[in-house]
Write a protein that binds this DNA or RNA. Structure first.
Length: 554
RNA sequence: CGGGGCAUAGCGCAGCUUGGAUAGCGCACCUGCCUUGGGAGCAGGGGGUCGGAGGUUCAAAUCCUCUUGCCCCGACCA
């Protein structure tokens, strides 16, 4: 392609609204433009990148026997009503009516419609397994679009759905998708982790997320350096550091005006890990007392799974329910439900005395009070790995893909059933798998760039090579450029020819910004010797070669 | 949804506190000359009515009210 005839509106100045590096570079490099909050126009360069990514995805999914198809973006409400998500999902779903007043919505995802199709077309165990996928637009009214193309309200997703007769079949398809996804992300040149994740509203028990490490990431994963345990911190299990404690007898201590763990800890000269933090939570059904170690943070999602929806109690509620001011609550002597983090199952602790201005030391959990034991603390860097002796570290990541075992949640709701060998009607067992191509692109930029611009992995770069004739008014320069352009193109190499009548500096700057992996530089000096230069964008190294050598190197 | 910030030429910004005459700068753009290995130089030129509505005032980019959009933090996130 000729640069002079391609829309590549590069920007010299820093866009003021961009924060994430990928966002800045996509804007500056003329890859995308923003139409409105969370809505982006993909210009020719970005579209080429996405198509390359999508082709890798296609190849790998076809390889495991998946079949590509395409689904509507506009859905009738009924299918979403049948699974209940029409009611469960709130403002995040775009809803509208057609001219007859029928309720419709824009697709946030395609479990419903895929399952609807399966319910009509799959009749027998002989029809399975099936894996259907598409590369389609999804629309979600995000509460807060951000970071350029990383979190948008409309985006392309590759989503794949498996249909099996039983859990074993599902497991096979799940494993096949892991294989395909591993290959896809590897081929796209990304560093990534596959981590255990929260199935969330998808339902089902098992789920993994593919995460690309990046400062621009919204998620955080906990990783064990020794055994490879990796999980989203939303559900990461961790072994709290063992702490030293003193065997003291139970004893009340006066702690005037000292309420927080930090205050009392400093006042008594005892480390925060020797405290029990008592938090009163109001769930939908009853108040619950949650206990965690003083040096830890309560993990609301974990608690949510145990007691359902809840909120922290207000100050006056604490007084009304426990009969003591917040700040002096202790675990003992209460009748309500108590859940405690495993970390405090051993040891001797200090906590509130349930009496203003007093705490108690020498408290023995399991002896002085009997809670339900759970993991309800937030895993943090330095905590022990739950599977080995290693310790965990945490890292910010971009979610680039996810895989879920759905089970029969959707097939049951939409009556997608088949007849098994015994002639019995059984619900289809499903899995769903998703990849965000734009996030792969953004993650690749986040992971591969320098101060001058992007450095695309070869597999997903918009072009394989950029030819840079330094002086387009020089006949020899141009004839060699044209020859290289033609011959490389004939060999199916994707070439960008910077045929603009611009100064050398402009072309170099733009080329580095665009990040095409290889640059072929044609200047008068080298050409006199019959040589051209090849520059590798990643290393910045240049080598001089004859034209034949260059052609042969591809 | 809570908190904060911004909105003046295509882009990046100044001017606003303390109202006052043709609203300014850099980049980009157009014309000419010159130049061609890291975003050149000189000369000339076009383009905005200050996000929108209302108000105060002799006078509003500037003060007041409302409103819309965008960004950031948090909540949320199939």
């Amino acid at each position: 392609m000729r640069y002079s005839k391609t829309l590549i509106p590069t920007l010299k100045e820093m866009p003021s609204d961009a924060e994430a590096i990928s966002h800045v570079l996509l804007l500056r490099g003329g890859y995308v433009r923003q139409l409105a909050s969370g809505l982006y126009i993909y210009l020719p360069l970005f579209w080429r990148v996405l198509n390359r990514i999508n082709n890798i995805i296609r190849q790998e999914l076809n390889r495991i026997g998946a079949q590509e198809l395409s689904m509507p973006v506009l859905h009738p409400a009924e299918v979403w009503q049948k699974t209940g998500r029409w009611y469960e999902i709130k403002e995040e779903m775009f809803r509208l009516k057609d001219r007859t007043g029928r309720d419709m919505c824009l697709a946030m995802t395609h479990e419903e419609v895929m399952t609807w199709l399966a319910s009509r077309e799959i009749r027998s165990y002989r029809d399975m397994p099936q894996v259907w996928y598409q590369i389609q637009t999804k629309v979600r009214d995000e509460a807060r679009p951000k970071s350029g193309v990383l979190r948008t309200r409309e985006f392309i997703m590759n989503d794949s759905y498996s249909f099996d007769v039983d859990d074993d079949g599902l497991q096979r398809n799940y494993d096949l998708h892991i294989e395909a996804y591993d290959r896809i992300f590897k081929r796209c040149g990304l560093d990534f982790y596959r981590v255990e994740s929260d199935p969330g509203m998808m339902g089902g028990a098992t789920a993994h997320e593919y995460m690309a490490p990046s400062l621009a990431g919204e998620d955080e994963v906990a990783i064990c350096g020794s055994c490879g345990y990796a999980a989203n911190v939303e559900l990461a299990v961790s072994v709290s550091k063992v702490h030293q404690y003193e065997e003291t007898s139970r004893q009340e201590v006066s702690t005037p005006q000292k309420r927080t763990v930090e205050e009392v800890s400093r006042f008594m000269g005892i480390g925060a890990e020797n405290f029990i933090k008592s938090l009163l939570l109001i769930s939908d059904t009853a108040p619950v007392l949650a206990l965690i170690r003083g040096d830890q943070v309560l993990h609301e999602k974990k608690v949510n799974r145990i007691i359902g929806n809840f909120r922290p109690a207000h100050k006056d509620e604490v007084k009304a329910i426990l009969g003591v001011e917040a700040g002096f609550i202790g675990p003992m002597g209460h009748k309500l439900r108590i859940i405690a983090d495993n970390a405090i199952s051993a040891g001797v602790y200090v906590s509130g005395a349930n009496k203003v201005d007093h705490h108690v030391k020498g408290i023995r959990p399991g002896v002085d009070f009997q809670p339900e034991w759970h993991d309800i603390h937030l895993a943090k860097a330095g905590d022990g790995c739950p599977h080995c002796d290693g310790s965990l570290r945490t890292e910010p990541v971009i979610e680039i893909g996810n895989i879920f075992k759905l089970g029969t949640k959707y097939s049951t709701a939409l009556d997608a059933v088949y007849l098994n060998k015994d002639g019995v009607e059984v619900p289809i067992v499903m899995g769903s798998y998703g990849i965000g191509p734009a996030r792969i692109a953004a993650a690749a930029i986040e992971q591969h760039h320098d101060v001058h611009g992007m450095m695309w992995p070869e597999s997903i770069a918009p072009f394989d090579v950029e030819i840079i004739p330094l002086n387009v008014n020089d006949a020899q320069t141009m004839s060699v450029s044209e020859r290289l352009y033609t011959e490389l193109t004939n060999r199916s190499i994707e070439v960008l020819l910077d045929d603009r009548d611009e100064r050398a500096g402009v072309k170099f700057k733009d080329a580095d910004l665009l990040g095409i992996p290889r640059q072929i530089i044609l200047g008068p000096k080298s050409l006199k010797e019959g040589l051209v230069e090849i520059k590798r964008r990643k290393t910045g190294q240049t080598e001089k070669h004859t034209i034949e050598q260059v052609l042969d190197s591809f």
